[in-house]
Amino acid sequence: MPARNEKEILITGFGGQGIVLTGSILGKAATLYDRRHATMTQSYGPEARGGSCSSQVIISEEEILFPYVEQPQVLICMSQEGYDKTKASLVPGGLLIWDTDLVTTRELEPSWTAYQIPATRFAEELGNKMMANIVMLGFLSAVSELVGVDSLRQAVQSSVPAKTRDTNAKAFERGREYGESLLKSRAKKDQGQEQA
C-alpha cells in the first residue's frame, strides 16, 4: 500500500534503453526543480545489455520512507517482457503508456488510461534510437502532471552529455507534441460522443 500522497511510477524495458536514466531524470525533475521529494530505485540482471530492467520512482510532497514501488499509478513499458511481467501491478484507474512498436497489449483493464507512442521510431527519425527514453519523457509530460514540464526539460538537459543536449531537447519536444495532439484528438472524440 503506497503511503498517502505518494505517486509511484514504474518504468520497464531492457538494458541499454536508458530505463534507469529515465527514472533518474524524472526523480531529478521532482527533487531539484519542483523541490518535492523523490526516490529512484533500479532493478536489473547481471547482463550488461539486453536483460530485463526497470526503474521505480516515487514522488511525494513528504519525505519518502519506503523506497520500493508496490502498486504503481503510472506504468511505462518499453519491452514486451516488461509489460507482461508488470501489468498486473498497475492500480485500477492507473496510467499505462507503451512503445507502439515494442509492446503488444491485447486486452486492457477498462479503468486504465492507456496511451501508446512509437517512441523508438520517432527517436530513429531524429537520428538515434537511444533517445527513445527522452521522447517517452516528453510524452509523459503531456499526458500526466507528475512533474512540471520545465522541471523535466531542465532535468533532461542537465542529465545528458553536453554535445547531445540539442538533439535530446528535440526528442523531448517530439514526444510532448505527440502527446498534446493525442489529447486534443481524444477530447474531440469525447465531445463528438457527447453530442451524439
Partner: peptide
C-alpha cells in the same frame, strides 16, 4: 545494493 543504487536528494 539499495542504498548504493538508490537516487535521492
Amino acid at each position: 545494493e539499495v542504498v548504493g543504487h538508490m537516487n535521492e536528494r
